[in-house]
Computed example of a mutant assay.
Amino acid sequence: MIARTLQDMFKRYRRPGDVVFAVFILALSILLISQLGEQTEVTKRTKWYAQPALWPKISLYSMCAFAFLHWLSSAMSPRIAGRWTEVALWMRGFEYVAYFLIYVLAVPKIGYLPSTVLFCVFLAFRTGFRDVRALLAAAVFAVGVVIVFRGVLAVKIPAGAIYDYLPDAIRSFALIYL
């Protein structure tokens, strides 16, 4: 089939959630543009193409323009049902962000090893692995992560407050390796 007009060539089909996505990105880009003066600076005696603020400005103004064009094209396209169902589907991903934030808050309290094991086993269970072998594999994986990060890479991770209650000999081991 041959496109008869330019409009036929660039016909766009709207998807559920397009307007919500476009408005969100447009609002985000406007918010970020409003912060440009605080986060970047124009330095004197520097050519325009070497300014620290050049690429952030180009990217944010482009983001704003393309978000507006996306919103405009979505507003001109026929509406499709299911917008809020699509948005609810997007929001489900924030559940895992909440889990990660809980994990980050738990590490200084109960320690890196216990919180990592609990986190991995919980995520394995949450994603549908109910078999004992799968949960054990998640725990072994967590121990491997701790060994790599604390032992091999020597990443400095705060010790858990719970380690203060351990006997001195075990406490020093736990502070270094767990």
Rank of each mutant, 00 (worst) to 15 (best):
A159S: 11
V155M: 15
A169S: 10
P16L: 02
M9L: 10
I162L: 15
V140F: 08
A22M: 12
D8S: 12
T43P: 02
T116V: 04
A159W: 12
P114E: 04
I170M: 13
T85G: 15
V104W: 06
R4W: 06
R4Y: 07
A139E: 04
I102K: 03
V42R: 10
M76D: 10
I147D: 02
R133V: 01
R4D: 07
E86V: 03
T43I: 13
T85I: 13
V42T: 09
V140I: 14
V97Q: 01
R14S: 09
A3Q: 08
A138I: 01
G128I: 01
V23L: 15
L6T: 12
S115M: 06
Y165F: 14
G17K: 01
V121R: 01
I162N: 05
T127F: 11
R130Y: 14
A134E: 11
R150Q: 13
V145W: 02
F21S: 03
W48S: 03
M9Q: 12
A81F: 05
R171A: 10
A154T: 07
L32A: 12
F122R: 00
S74L: 06
V145E: 04
F21W: 09
V143T: 03
V42G: 05
P16K: 01
A159C: 13
V104A: 06
V146D: 07
V132E: 08
L6D: 08
I162F: 12
T116Y: 08
A106C: 09
A75H: 11
L6A: 11
I102C: 15
R12A: 10
Y103E: 06
A3I: 00
A138K: 05
L175K: 10
F100D: 05
R133L: 12
L153G: 07
G82H: 03
F129M: 02
L60K: 00
F100T: 09
F122G: 00
A75G: 02
K11E: 12
T127G: 15
I170K: 07
A50Q: 15
R92E: 09
R150H: 09
P108D: 07
L153Q: 05
L69I: 09
E86W: 05
G151D: 06
Y99V: 00
E38K: 14
A142N: 02
Q35P: 02
V145F: 09
Q39L: 13
V107L: 04
V132T: 06
P167Q: 04
Y49S: 06
K109Y: 13
G144M: 08
L175Y: 11
Q51I: 00
R92G: 15
G93W: 05
A134N: 07
A159E: 13
D18G: 03
G144S: 10
M1E: 04
V148P: 01
R79A: 15
A75S: 14
D164T: 07
E95A: 03
Y13D: 14
F94P: 02
W48P: 01
V146N: 13
A98P: 03
P108K: 02
F94R: 04
Y13L: 08
A139G: 15
A139Q: 08
Y163Q: 06
D131I: 00
I176L: 08
V20N: 00
I30Y: 04
P158Q: 11
D168C: 02
T5L: 13
L6V: 08
I176C: 06
S115T: 01
V117N: 01
